[in-house]
Simulated scan of single mutants.
Amino acid sequence: MRQIYPDLWQTSPERPIPDTPEATSHAYLLLRDGGNVLFYGTGREEGGSPKEEDDLRGIQHLGGVSHQILAHWHEAAPSLAHIREMFGSKLCCHERDASDVARIGKIEVDQVFRRAETALSDIEVIPTPGHTAGSTCFLYRSPHGKTYLFSGDTIVPARDSWLSAALGGSKADLRNSLELLRNLKPDAVMAAGALGPDTYREIASPAAWQAAIDAAEQALS
C-alpha cells in the first residue's frame, strides 16, 4: 500500500495482461467519514495472492471498506467475494455491466448506477460508456483540497501520453464520453489500468487536461 494523499491510498501493482508486461493496474482506497470506498479490483485470485492479502490487511488497518466500486466489468474476479466476506462491503457498478460482473466474479452486485447522480452523499457518478457499455467514472472533491477523477479505463496513462480504447463498447460512445470528461477540472486522475509503471497521474493545469483528452481521442482514432 502506498499513500498518495491524506485520504487516498494505492494498492500494490498487478500485471493484468500476461502478454503485455508493461500493463499495470491498481486499486484505490478512499478514506471517508461516511465509510471507506475501494475503487476497482485488487487482484484475480479467488483466495487472494500473498501481495493482495498484504494490501487487504493494510486496508483493514485503515478502517476497512464500506463499498467497493467497479468502473467496468473487466475488473471482476473471484477475489471480489473475498473482499465482501472480509469487510462486509457492498459491491457497486453500472447496471449495464452488472450481469458480467456477477458472472465473472461469481457474486451478486449490491448497488447499480443508472445515470449521472451523487452516490454515498459525495461521489459523483459519471456514466462514460464506450470502453464497455457500462463504463463509469467517478469524481470526488476531497476535503483536503484536490479533486480526484477515478477514470476506470475510459482514459488511462500510456507511457508519457494518454490512451483510450473501446474493448467491448462503442468507439462513438467513447468519443462522446471523452468529450464529457473534457469539461471536468481534475487535479489527479486514478485510472484502473495503464501502459507504464503507474495508474495515477497529477494534472498540472486545465490545459494539461485538455491535452490529455486530445491524446486519448487521437489514440482512439
Rank of each mutant, 00 (worst) to 15 (best):
Q3E: 13
Y5P: 04
D7L: 14
L8V: 04
L8W: 06
L8G: 03
S12V: 00
E14N: 13
R15E: 11
P18M: 02
D19L: 12
D19S: 12
T20H: 12
T20Y: 09
P21H: 01
E22L: 11
A23M: 08
S25P: 00
H26M: 06
L31Y: 02
L31M: 12
G34Q: 15
G34K: 15
G35P: 06
V37P: 02
F39D: 02
Y40M: 08
G43R: 07
S49C: 11
E52N: 13
E52A: 14
E53S: 12
E53F: 00
D54I: 13
G58F: 10
G58E: 14
H61V: 11
L62N: 03
G64A: 06
V65R: 07
S66I: 00
S66N: 08
Q68H: 05
Q68Y: 00
L70V: 01
W73Q: 14
H74E: 10
E75F: 04
A77Y: 08
A81V: 02
I83M: 10
G88I: 06
G88K: 10
L91H: 02
A98Y: 07
D100L: 12
D100G: 00
V101F: 08
V101P: 02
A102N: 05
I107P: 01
Q111R: 15
V112M: 08
V112N: 05
V112W: 00
R115M: 08
E117L: 09
T118C: 09
A119S: 08
L120S: 01
D122T: 13
E124Y: 07
E124T: 09
I126Y: 01
T128F: 00
T128C: 15
T128A: 06
P129V: 05
H131Y: 08
T132R: 04
A133D: 15
G134Q: 09
G134D: 09
S135N: 11
S135C: 10
T136V: 06
F138M: 04
F138G: 08
L139S: 14
S142N: 09
T147V: 14
Y148Q: 02
Y148W: 09
F150L: 15
D153H: 03
T154V: 15
I155L: 12
P157Y: 01
A158N: 11
R159W: 13
S161D: 13
L167I: 15
G168W: 03
K171W: 01
A172F: 01
D173E: 15
L174I: 02
R182D: 06
R182G: 09
R182E: 10
L184F: 09
L184E: 10
K185M: 10
P186E: 04
D187P: 05
A192G: 15
G193T: 14
G193P: 03
A194H: 05
A194I: 05
L195G: 05
P197T: 03
P197F: 03
Y200V: 14
R201C: 12
A207V: 03
A207S: 13
A208D: 11
A208E: 07
A208K: 05
A211S: 14
A212R: 03
D214S: 13
D214M: 07
A216G: 07
A216R: 05
E217W: 03
A219E: 08
